[in-house]
Amino acid sequence: MTDQPQSRAPRRATVQELRLAAFKSHRGTVLPLAPVTLLHGAGGTGKSNALDALVALCGLAGGAELEQALAGVRGGLAGCAPHGRQGFRLGCSVGTPQGTVRLEVAVRTDGRPRIAAERLALGRQLLLSTGEEARGRISAAWHSDGRQGDIHAPLSARSLLSAQLPLRVAGANPGERRVLAAVEHLLTALRELFAVDPVPALMRGWVPVSDDARLRGSAENLAAVIARIQGECRIRFGRLVQTLRAGSSQPVAGLGVLRDASGGGERVITAVDEGDGHWTSAELLGAGTLRRLAFATVLLTGPGVLQLTSAAEVPDAERLLTVLAEDLDQELCAGLLPLAQELVPRGHLRLLATARTPARLPGVLEVRCERDPASGGSLLVPAPAAVAPGAAPAAVG
């Protein structure tokens, strides 16, 4: 998919494709990514595993050693390897104003975890390749226009090599500056990721109030974030109330928090005004209402209100956040996918969601996830509208 010519280069670095060569239940599958992508299928088919691949790449892009970088993936580093394997392989394509950057990485999990191979390319030009690995070091070569050609040096095999290059490449000539630019685009696109999986049981408690509250992936501190938004941005808060009202079967006259300062420090809990001044706290709200509220908060607020490790050097105006939303039911799909489509043209948001059933909404790229009865591995089948003209839809893998 990434070899197809693009009609227009993206303004910001954008993850356009995931390649799961050998990752958890996936072997040789490819997941194309659009501004709004819905991965659907029955439970146990590998939808969450595909999301974990993007979480893994996000962690690797942070530059930490492998165990720490992959701690956010379900099952940690060891859980990334397919059953019976001693490692995993995955990659991605990132669209940039200069062209498509492709990353491929292989990790060994036997013994001390290490990078076994890594390759980075811009279009058809190879920017980084690796050779032998031993004693925690791996031989690497990166592109240079210098008189002696490409630069060869050993790098640490304990973390993603691409994340090490900004401190190793001098940028002394156009070739090296091309490497640095490609790496910057790659790392920025991968690090601007927020996975949200609201847990209603955790959202029903009182939490400390904070002027700088940032939403966690479980949304357990949603009340503190709502209190912050209510005080900082009335327009976004108003849209949040509208979204909650549109998807609720019960009356919603208002949204806010109840406050308690009896314990010495102020605490808050989410509450909904059901009319006539009757406020119902999160302790009594349904799970569907709380999940809708959490997902809508993520879509309407942006990186500044989310707890994520992003590229600090990127100004807020240049950020492009990829939101991972897991296990949407039909009602959530009907309400949140159109909201995401409305916000996407502003250029700051992309959404990858999972659900058990397709949404069949115009403009949403839908990919079916299923199990191969012969191998037991996961397959990804794009919807007919996502297939290139003249090509029949087929399982990728």
Results as ranks from 00 to 15, higher is better:
S310E: 09
V55N: 03
G91S: 08
P303E: 07
D372A: 13
P154A: 15
S7H: 12
A163L: 04
A34K: 03
L321T: 02
S48L: 09
G377Q: 15
A296T: 07
C233Q: 09
A219M: 12
Q148V: 07
P382G: 07
G302Q: 06
V15S: 09
G302E: 03
A157R: 04
L57Q: 08
R292K: 08
L349Y: 00
R360E: 11
G72Y: 07
A182N: 05
L352V: 11
T37E: 10
G275I: 04
R360Y: 07
L351E: 10
G277C: 04
R356D: 03
A287G: 07
S218R: 15
G335S: 10
S310Y: 02
S262M: 05
A53V: 02
E192D: 06
L90A: 08
D150V: 06
V323E: 09
E192T: 02
R114D: 10
R346V: 01
Q242C: 03
R368E: 15
E192F: 00
V169Q: 09
L332Q: 10
P97V: 04
L77I: 05
E132D: 12
T109S: 09
R137W: 08
V241A: 10
A153Y: 11
G44C: 13
W206F: 14
A71C: 03
A334R: 13
A213V: 01
R239E: 13
L39F: 03
C369V: 09
A385P: 04
